[in-house]
């Protein structure tokens, strides 16, 4: 259940941004979540509802999740391919010398405040 721990870290980051920008009430937090980040969006939003309700700054606010596609680069043939469909083996040349370009992000894109 790492989603709960992640939610606590989001709230702490939002508190910092709010303090830096003089914000008193947050209406929404937009999160960018990579397809292979290992974080389950439904669990995350459930944890958010529970944890955010306990903090005045974010209570009642919405956690919006934008999914970022996972893309893997192949060192064998130099091409990129979608990670979720093909995993670690390149579908073009069958090389295993591949690495993830994008898709493991868990980042706060922006927050909306009244």
């Amino acid at each position: 259940m790492h989603e709960l721990g992640i939610v606590f870290h989001i709230i702490r980051s939002v508190e910092q941004v709010a303090a830096d920008n003089g914000l008193e009430k947050i209406s929404a937090v937009v999160l960018e979540l990579g397809e292979v980040s290992g974080v389950v969006p439904d669990y995350l939003t459930d944890c958010w509802k529970w944890a955010a309700a306990k903090e005045e700054l974010v209570s009642g606010s919405e956690l919006k999740i934008e999914t970022l596609p996972a893309v893997t680069h192949c060192g064998g043939c130099g091409r990129d391919y979608p990670t979720v469909a093909h995993g670690r083996i390149c579908p073009h040349c069958q090389s295993g010398n591949t690495w993830l370009l994008t898709g493991n992000e868990v980042s706060i894109k922006e927050i909306a405040a009244y």
Binding site: S13, N21, L31, S107, E110, A112, A113, Y114
Partner: peptide
């Protein structure tokens, strides 16, 4: 009230 959008662009693990 007008809603303000603050761009953050920060990994959740950064903190």
């Amino acid at each position: 009230n007008q809603v303000r959008i603050i761009e953050v662009k920060q990994s959740v693990f950064a903190d």
